[in-house]
Design a binder for these strands. Structure first.
Lengths: 100, 100
DNA sequence: TTAATATATCGCAATTTATAGATATGTTTG
DNA sequence: CAAACATATCTATAAATTGCGATATATTAA
């Protein structure tokens, strides 16, 4: 982790909705309904569920999630027409180590 | 630590200069010249030294430091006409615990 | 192949942030 | 008290971010 990447992560954490999404994704089973096709949360939560829970527009949430993936906070996995998002614990740990 | 406070901290960490200051303050002896009046860094580093090292205007740095103190990242101590800034390790720890 | 569904990207207006210069406040020193 | 110094605050402008609707792309279903 270097200063530039850490600052990119900081930018994602500077918005309450984005930060909240990261918190929700700590416990997908608790915060989101189960997926109909996948019977588990192994790859995280689909965009639509996150969008509905956040209450912002589809385009806004999609952009947020893309940014959060780019800076390393999230891992995105495609299954058919769905994208599933989960926390990238490794990068998050590197970020907190850098900060402390 | 709650979502609102964490996001305020995120805002401070969304700017490279502010993040850099926090990193510099990990090792004041290494990153700053010694103070003439105080022979130690117990209360941190004065505003002028931080401003000179950052290379931005006095007003900008003063605003940054004020914000960083307000959100809990820094602790400010006055000694006469100088303000000394140091990291608030307790809040930083609370922030990283909240994130992980 | 067409329609429906899920997600991504584009373009835009509104809001927020970045940063500086000017000025104000507070402290020390002559 | 006046001058000098350190820091804080105010005001203004440029730049970046927010968040949306429209549209594009990709995948599945009919």
């Amino acid at each position: 982790m270097n200063l530039k990447q850490a600052t990119e992560i900081g930018k994602c954490l500077s918005n309450q909705t984005r930060f909240q999404i990261l918190e929700w994704l700590k416990e997908p089973e608790k915060n989101f309904p189960p997926h109909e096709t996948l019977k588990h949360f192994n790859d995280g939560v689909c965009v639509t569920y996150i969008q509905e829970k956040a209450g912002l527009s589809q385009s806004t949430i999609s952009t947020y999630l893309t940014n959060m993936e780019k800076c390393g906070l999230l891992i995105s996995t495609r299954h058919g027409k769905w994208s599933y998002l989960k926390r990238n614990e490794e990068t998050i740990k590197q970020f907190t180590d850098f900060l402390i």
